[in-house]
Design a protein around this nucleic acid. Sequence first.
DNA 1: CAAAAAGGCAACAAGATTGTTGCATTTTAT
DNA 2: ATAAAATGCAACAATCTTGTTGCCTTTTTG
Lengths: 106, 106
Amino acid sequence: MTESRVFKALGDPLRLRIVQRLSSESHHTISTLSEDLGLTRQGARRQIQVLVDAQILRLQPVGRETRVTLDVSTLETAREWITSLERQWDQRLMALKTLVEATPTN
Amino acid sequence: MTESRVFKALGDPLRLRIVQRLSSESHHTISTLSEDLGLTRQGARRQIQVLVDAQILRLQPVGRETRVTLDVSTLETAREWITSLERQWDQRLMALKTLVEATPTN
DNA sequence: CAAAAAGGCAACAAGATTGTTGCATTTTAT
DNA sequence: ATAAAATGCAACAATCTTGTTGCCTTTTTG
């Protein structure tokens, strides 16, 4: 499953905080995010890279700093994966219900 | 972030397969899932427990076997978390666009 | 009742993850 | 031209994670 990488990247409180910040505020760099998280720069950098590998974030070097932005399309794909799973589940329940109603009570 | 536990649980190909199977087919036990995954029973049990801890699965002992079922409400919550994040992002883009349009070009 | 089926718990080794420190490079500001 | 700012890369130690094996208990079946 390709999606597992995305979910795995989201599966950490710190990384979830990063994603949340990026969704609501603009102009973040590796340094500003490090300060926000209370980690060393390299510590935060690690976490950011996990999100970049999962294509949830994008890095854009601008001069001496690196701009960090969100790639919402990846999140959308993840959301849709869950949605289709829920749909499958609903269909199965529906089929089961129909089956029960069609079966005469003994 | 409470959701990180759910995402983390989904962040593994094997576990994702378990969830997918449970959404489409019924009557699964720990043993049948083990066979499906090609792991030892204890190996599969570990993975199942991760999903149970994240409240994505429920276990229900029936006689000597243990029925495994999906708890879709947890998946729904996770999906909604993503949705609200996307909404926040959209709002920010919208605000930015308005700002740009209102600023006279120099 | 004895054997098979389904499971539980704990210990282990191999890998993966995390956050830190140390040091080098590039860009910007004084 | 320096100094400060923003990063990068690599090595480490401390933790998790994973799948296996070994052994014990409970429930069903013949």
